[in-house]
Design a protein around this nucleic acid. Structure first.
Lengths: 99, 99
DNA sequence: GCATCAATTCGACAGTTGTCTAACTATCAA
DNA sequence: TTGATAGTTAGACAACTGTCGAATTGATGC
C-alpha cells in the first residue's frame, strides 16, 4: 500500500512531543493507551501506574498539550484516546530531519 | 525494497535517546551532523550553536551515551559521526510500542 | 621548553520537572 | 440533600538539567 502522507507539525509541537515522550511514566501511559483499543478513563490508567491521581493528571495534561492524546468527558469520567496520526507525523519528522 | 530489520535496543537506551532528543540544542546538533556528510569536530558545531565549549561538551556526551553519535579522536580534534542505525531502531521501537 | 588551540572537567547556580498532600469541583446515586 | 467517586488545582519540595566561567588535560608547532 502507499503510505499516507502525514501533515507536518510546527516546530513547537515537535519539542512538546519529544519532551512528553522523554518521561518513562508518560511513555508507559501511551503504551497502555495504544494497546487497549477502547476509551480509557484515568482510573484505569491509575491502576497500572504507581503515582497519585494528581500526578497522573499532570502527566495527562502534558500528553494532551503535546497532542499525543485527546480526551472526552463522559459523566464522571474522562476518557482518553491516543492520537496515532500525531505520533506518525512526529516519526516522519524525525526521520526526515535526522537522516 | 525490503526494509532491513533494525536490531532492538534495551529499554534503558530507549529512555536515554528520548531524553537526548528532548533538548532543542541536541536536536539541532544531530540535525547538523546528519546534514553534513563528513567527520565533524566540536569547533564546527560550536560555530552554529550558541553555547560555550563546556556546554557543548556536555551535550555531546549525552548524545554519545544515548548512542546517537560516535566520536573518534584525530590529533587535537574530536570528530563526531551520527549513528543512523540507532535512530532507526528507536523509530521502529516507538512505532511498535505506540501504535 | 613554551605558547597555542581543542576539548574536558569541576563547581556553582538558576530554572525546570516529577512528585506529593490537601483542598477543591463536578457528577452520580441513594 | 448527603455521601461517594472521578478528576483538577494549588502549593511545596527535592531532584535533575542546562548553562556558565575557570581550571585542566592533551596535542601541535615554534
Amino acid at each position: 500500500m502507499a503510505a499516507k502522507r502525514t501533515q507536518p507539525l510546527p516546530d513547537g509541537q515537535i519539542q512538546l512531543i519529544a519532551r512528553a515522550l522523554a518521561d518513562p511514566r508518560r511513555y508507559e501511559i501511551l503504551q497502555k493507551l495504544s494497546a487497549r483499543n477502547r476509551p480509557t478513563p484515568c482510573t484505569d490508567i491509575l491502576e497500572c501506574i504507581g503515582v497519585t491521581a494528581a500526578t497522573l493528571s499532570h502527566h495527562m495534561k502534558e500528553l494532551e498539550t503535546a497532542g499525543l492524546v485527546r480526551c472526552e468527558k463522559k459523566g464522571k469520567f474522562v476518557n482518553y484516546f491516543p492520537q496515532p496520526r500525531i505520533l506518525r507525523a512526529y516519526l516522519d519528522r524525525l526521520k526526515s530531519d535526522l537522516s
